[in-house]
């Protein structure tokens, strides 16, 4: 005669293994289910990204050659290379980097230092977070209204730098702030106990500690800026002009060709620029942005290895 022992009887009999076995089975089932779910979704996302990349590489790779990368367009842009666009994009990035990094870090430091105590700073934080989510076209129009027209800088490299700087600032400010917040307070205590002032502790201890995180933020936000056409659309861009080929002080006041704008225009005016050139430029831009992101990761791992 077999009677199912009740739960209480089993507990009293000390059948711990048998009790555990049931839970183990349930746990295994749940693990399998969540692995499948997350694994599936993850794999799908990765697949999608790879598909996108694969198409661009497939279409763009045949065009890539030293000549394509180093020569200006020829024959009314229907042939030749895209060097002026690459150079323009690099110029835009360089100036933006030099302007946005110090200003953004300074802003992040202010928010991290005074953010919690003052209401104005909390408001600033909220505003910066909102700006980080503002669509790039808004920056483009702002740059047009203020830098191009009001300050009479014209459609120029300079206006592009200023607009892109505004565009990348919010992300730099926010990453600087959050990187500074990860600094252990034991380190700050250590600095203050040595007699360092608040600012010395910040510059000598907190900022170096947070620097890898800050630089990651800087590069990621520049990468984003590099790929956006709309902030530079009305402020800095020109499709192509032969004046592009010399560099000098006057370049600052002249518009520059750049990759995103070239792509947008080239696509908008069908028949002028042949498809294979567009795909090649597309691949070049993606590689540029990926290289920047790779640099960010490299900086972070190197810094971590150095400190730990």
């Amino acid at each position: 005669m077999e009677v199912q022992a009740t739960y209480l009887e089993r507990v009293r009999a000390g059948e711990w293994e048998a009790l555990a076995a049931r839970r183990d089975k349930a746990r295994l089932r749940k693990n399998a289910l969540s692995s499948a779910l997350f694994g599936g979704v993850g794999a799908f996302t990765i697949l999608l990204v790879f598909l996108l990349l694969a198409v661009i590489v497939y279409k763009g790779a045949p065009t890539i050659s030293w000549e394509f990368l180093s020569q200006p367009p020829k024959e009314g842009m229907s042939a030749g290379g895209i060097w002026p666009m690459i150079r323009g994009s690099l110029l835009l990035m360089l100036g933006t980097f030099l302007l946005a990094t110090p200003i953004g870090i300074f802003g992040g430091v202010c928010l991290a230092e005074y953010g919690e105590r003052s209401r104005i700073m909390r408001l600033m934080h909220a505003s910066v977070a909102a700006l980080a989510g503002t669509p790039p076209i808004v920056y483009g129009l702002f740059g047009l209204a203020i830098f191009v027209l009001k300050f009479k800088l014209g459609v120029s490299l300079l206006s592009g730098w200023l607009t892109l700087t505004l565009f990348s600032l919010p992300v730099i400010v926010l990453t600087t702030e959050s990187a500074l917040k990860t600094v252990p307070s034991a380190l700050i205590d250590g600095g203050l106990a040595l007699g360092l002032s608040r600012w010395q502790t910040l510059w000598r201890i907190a900022l170096p500690y947070a620097m890898p995180g800050i630089m990651t933020g800087v590069i990621l936000s520049l990468g984003r800026a590099a790929g956006e056409a709309t902030p530079v659309l009305f402020t800095a861009s020109i499709y192509y002009s032969t004046a592009q080929l010399t560099l000098g002080w006057e370049t600052l006041r002249q518009p520059v060709a750049n990759l995103p704008y070239y792509l947008a225009e080239g696509y908008r005016q069908p028949g002028v620029v042949p498809d294979h050139l567009i795909w090649g430029a597309c691949l070049t831009l993606i590689v540029l942005v990926l290289l920047m992101n790779a640099a960010a990761i490299l900086i972070r791992t190197c810094a971590r290895r150095r400190y730990l």
Binding site: P184, G190, S197
Partner: peptide, 19 residues
Amino acid sequence: TRLRREVGMVFQKPNPFPM
């Protein structure tokens, strides 16, 4: 700063700087 130059402190958990 002068006070803490005169009176140094070591904490319960070692806290070397990341350098």
